[in-house]
Each structure stands twice: as C-alpha cells, then as structure tokens.
C-alpha cells in the first residue's frame, strides 16, 4: 500500500517536472527572431461539412507590431492583428473590426494568437495548461485553457515543430478542427518599409 502511494506521488512529481522541462527544451530549440515570414496551408474540418475546407496564403509575424494573415485562395482575405485591434478585410472592404477599447477580449485573443504564430510557448503557458514530448529535434505541445470562458473559443491547441513551429491545430468549442501548416518559414531582424505600412 505504502509503495503504491509513493509511486503515485513520484509519478505526479515526475510528470510535473517533465512538463516544465518540455517547455524549456522547446524554447531552447526554437529560433526566436523579431520577424517571421512564411506561407501556410489551412485545413478546416466542420461537423456537418463532409469535405475539408482547404485554403492557403502568406503570413507575417512581427514583435511589437502584430500579425498579418493573408488568405490567397480560394478567397482573398486579410486579417490584421495589432495590440488593440482585429481587422478583417476583403480586398478593399472591411469585413470585421474589433477594437480593444470597445471589446477588451480582443487583447486577450490577440496576445494568444500572436504567441501561437510567433512560437512564444512560454506566454501560452500563462493561460493554458500544457503537456508535451520531445523526440530528437521534433517536439509536440498540447495546450488546454485554464479559463472556462476561453474554453468556449478554444478547446485545445496543439503545436508541433522543430527549430520552427511547423503546424498548429486548433480545436474549437463547436468541434471544428483547424489545422495550419507552415511552409518556407524565414526569420529576420527587421520589417521592410512596405511591411511596416501594412500595420498602419
């Protein structure tokens, strides 16, 4: 009886220590530069829709600026995340605009999404419980929201990668699963002037 108890305690102890290590190990592997550019392929599965919805495009993540997410096909759509705003445009018309002053949740959503796309796993660990494992240079982390209300938007978040984040899988509350795979990821120290303009 005693040994069982001890094993259990040890298991929990080890488990916790292990999780801590995973996060630190992943952080060590990741290249954290101020600017990341690349391409993505998004595959979405929705309960009532048989065929997966596939789209692709470009992305740009810049520390202190935000995220530009350009969907190129099958629809053209740009989503821009800054500290205080989420703006979605379809060519020239604004489809959606959420301001943090009016809707404080924008700040929380934006900081989570920025962390996801920039690979800031330490920041994610503040709002999510996590677990993960490392196999050689590859790693896989699973995040579940600490907050019940955040869980209404995101049930689970799964990140995979090596030196870069290679894919993100987001499980929405309604059971929809969105998988984003990154390709041709490149790092940089600064933004070009044209890119800076995009954030204005």
């Amino acid at each position: 009886m005693k040994t069982i108890f001890l094993t259990l305690v040890l298991c929990f102890g080890v488990g916790a220590a292990h999780a801590e290590d995973v996060l630190q190990a992943v952080e060590k592997q990741l290249i954290l530069e101020p600017v990341v550019r690349g391409e993505f392929v998004q595959t979405r599965k929705i309960a009532q829709i048989k065929k997966p919805l596939v789209s692709n495009g470009r992305f740009l993540v810049a520390r202190n600026y935000g995220v530009i997410w350009e969907n190129v096909s099958p629809i053209t759509q740009t989503t821009r995340l800054t500290r205080n705003e989420i703006v979605q445009t379809d060519g020239n018309t604004t489809l959606m605009k959420l301001n943090a002053e009016k809707e404080p949740v924008v700040r929380i959503i934006n900081s989570i999404l920025f962390s996801v796309f920039s690979g800031d796993v330490a920041a994610l660990a503040k709002v999510f419980d996590y677990s993960g494992k490392i196999e050689g240079t590859r790693w896989r982390l699973t995040f579940t929201p600490k907050d019940k209300n955040l869980a209404r938007l995101i049930q689970e978040l799964r990140l995979e990668g090596g030196r870069d984040v290679s894919s993100v899988e987001l499980e929405g509350a309604a059971g929809d699963v969105t998988r984003i795979e990154f390709k041709a990821t490149a790092h940089d120290k600064t933004l070009s002037d044209a890119e800076k303009k995009q954030f204005e």
């Binding site: 309960a47 969907n71 629809i75 989503t79 959606m96 959503i109 999404l113 209404r152 929405g172």
Partner: peptide, 25 residues
C-alpha cells in the same frame, strides 16, 4: 455569399458560435 465564405475560411473563430448555425455571423 462572400460574407459567409469569409467567415468559413477565417483563420480563427471570434464568436464561439459554430459556422453551421450562424453562417453570416
């Protein structure tokens, strides 16, 4: 139609309501 498609392909959900029950948001 464009509005519904945009919501369908948006990179992340903002309302927590499934697309199939609120296609126009």
């Amino acid at each position: 139609h464009a509005r519904a498609m945009n919501l369908l392909y948006a990179p992340f959900p903002t309302s927590g309501v499934p697309w199939t029950s609120d296609p126009f948001g």
